[in-house]
Structure formats: structure tokens, C-alpha cells
Design a protein around this nucleic acid. Structure first.
Length: 292
DNA sequence: TACCAGGAGAGCG
DNA sequence: CGCTCTCATGGT
């Protein structure tokens, strides 16, 4: 048994931490000097990546780092996942552009709440809303000496006590009543997020979609980013654009057909492939990738 | 200024 | 069923 320590080095290859933390699956990580500072559960965490390892630092000594290995999915063999992607031109381009991109394993409530806030918002705005929410409703956390104070993501029970007006003051606009109603269903025990994780994907999706403000896309985000359903394939405006442009050029294809195509074309880790397409499209827009 | 953003839900024919 | 409109807010 290793002694409890505040830092730990994990040997790791093929892990692009920057791409992973900025690819629109999580909204709280901040680049700081040469590393990343964020919160996992009720722990302040700093991550530092180099080509062969990830070094983690916490505020208080840790004996069992399993929670971090789980969050970062350190034991996942990326090459095995990538081999299940279809060998077509769009995927090859996305793979080249996004080498080392990973999927995290998030807390279901934080993921659900964050994506309820995500609808028709740009990622920097989602980050701002989530930041305000944590600052105003989250539990204060221990941080190392000299570090800025930070808070946990607020529990459903805490948000359930807020008023719609207070939530709107966090700049979430028309999403406020959705988040509030969902928080109250979960806090009141009317909806069991833990049980959803034990259901087959289709049943879990249907269950999630009974929550206010949760449609197909947000349900799929929770399934993929928090429940480990690597087949779940969230289709947002960017992924729609990617699928239409790359796979159905000059055709009129409706959303249900895109879902059907995605489910059959991208294999058992379709959701993983989806994240590569999403990130690839964003890199293209920012012109940070070569087209040829 | 006009348009768009990791959508969902309601109303319409 | 398929389409359109609305819902806040901030960025380009």
C-alpha cells in the first residue's frame, strides 16, 4: 500500500490532456501556467501532462487515487478503441487532427446539469454560467496554500432550494426553469440518477428524457460522458454539420436518418468517434488544422 | 447589424 | 409526423 501523498505521477501515452479538457465535454478546467486546475467531486486538482505522463496534485493527501484514474479513464487502451472506428476518409482526417483526444468519466449530476445549461450556448458561455453556479451555490473546497479559492459543483438539493430568478441571475436565461425543475425532481427522490446508470441504454435514454430540459441530445451526452455508454452518439449542430458535409454531401438528410446512420456506421465506440468529429469541426473553424 | 451558439418544448396543419 | 417559433444572452 502506497503512503498517502498530495502528488502522484501516472505513466501515460497517447493522452492529449489539453484537447480532452477543452473539447466541450467538461466546462470547469482552466489552463494555469503549464498545467490545468479543476475540481473532481469535492477535490481541488491540478494536472500536468508531458508526452509520457500525467502528474496530479491535490490539496490534501490521497491514499487511493482510483477516483482520478476513473475520471481520466487512465486504464483505457485508446488504440483498441480507435481500431473500432470506420476506416473512411472523414474519420482518418479527424483521427490525425485529434490524436490523443479522450473521453472522461464524469459525475452524472454535474454532467446532466451542465448540459441542460448548454443548449444554444457557445462553450465559453457555458463555462461562465457553470462558474457562476459553482461560485454561488457550491461548497467551498480546500486548496493548496497560495491557490485561488474554489467550489464544488452544487448538489441538486442545493439548487432545488434556489428560486428561478436567482438561477437566471447566473445568466442561464430560459434554461433556469429547466435546471430548477430537474434539480427538484432529483433532490426530491422522484428521479434516481444512480438507477439510470444500471439500465440498458435505450431505457436509460428514455428515462433521462422525462426530465425537464432534457431531450435526445442532452440525454446522449449524459450517457456518453457520465454513464460510460460509448455507443451513445450526441448529435448537436456541429455534429449534424459534420455528418451532412462529410457523409451526405449535397443531400437533404433529416435528423432521424443521421441518428440511424451514426448507430450503424461508427461501431461500438460511436460516441468516441463522435467526439473526434466534434473536436475536428471546431479545429477546422478555428483554422488550427491543415485541410489537405 | 444580423446571425449563430454542444436544444427543448409547444403549437400548428 | 414534420415544420416553425420562442425561449436569454453573448460572441463574431
Amino acid at each position: 500500500m502506497m503512503a498517502a501523498a498530495r502528488t502522484r505521477m501516472f505513466p501515460m501515452r497517447d493522452y492529449d490532456l489539453a484537447a480532452t479538457l477543452t473539447s466541450g465535454q467538461v466546462f470547469r478546467w482552466q489552463r494555469h501556467e503549464s498545467g490545468w486546475i479543476g475540481v473532481i467531486g469535492k477535490r481541488w486538482v491540478r494536472l500536468q501532462a508531458d508526452p509520457s505522463s500525467i502528474v496530479a496534485e491535490t490539496a490534501e493527501p490521497v491514499a487511493d487515487w482510483g477516483w482520478l484514474a476513473d475520471y481520466l479513464q487512465l486504464e483505457l487502451d485508446l488504440k483498441t478503441v480507435l481500431r473500432t472506428f470506420p476506416d473512411d476518409e472523414p474519420m482518418r482526417a479527424a483521427l490525425t487532427a485529434c490524436r490523443g483526444l479522450r473521453l472522461l468519466r464524469q459525475d452524472p449530476w454535474e454532467c446532466l446539469a451542465s448540459f441542460i445549461l448548454s443548449s444554444t450556448k457557445q462553450i465559453p458561455q457555458i463555462r461562465q454560467i457553470v462558474s457562476l453556479l459553482c461560485e454561488r451555490y457550491g461548497e467551498a473546497l480546500a486548496v493548496p496554500e497560495g491557490r485561488a479559492p474554489t467550489c464544488a459543483f452544487p448538489a441538486a438539493a442545493r439548487l432545488a432550494q434556489a428560486s428561478e430568478g436567482e438561477l437566471r441571475a447566473c445568466k442561464m436565461g430560459f434554461r433556469a426553469p429547466f435546471l430548477l425543475a430537474t434539480a427538484r425532481k432529483i433532490a426530491g427522490g422522484e428521479f434516481d440518477l444512480g438507477r439510470v446508470q444500471t439500465l440498458p441504454v435505450e431505457a436509460a435514454r428514455a428515462e433521462l428524457m422525462t426530465l425537464p430540459g432534457v431531450g435526445r441530445k442532452i440525454a446522449d451526452c449524459v450517457l456518453l460522458f457520465a454513464c460510460g455508454c460509448s455507443h451513445a452518439f450526441p448529435v448537436d449542430v456541429w455534429v449534424q454539420k459534420a455528418l451532412r458535409q462529410l457523409y451526405f454531401p449535397r443531400q437533404r438528410v433529416r435528423l432521424p436518418r443521421l441518428h440511424q446512420f451514426a448507430a450503424s456506421h461508427f461501431g461500438p465506440n460511436a460516441g468516441y468517434a463522435q467526439q473526434y468529429l466534434f473536436h475536428y469541426m471546431r479545429l477546422l473553424r478555428k483554422r488550427q488544422v491543415c485541410l489537405s
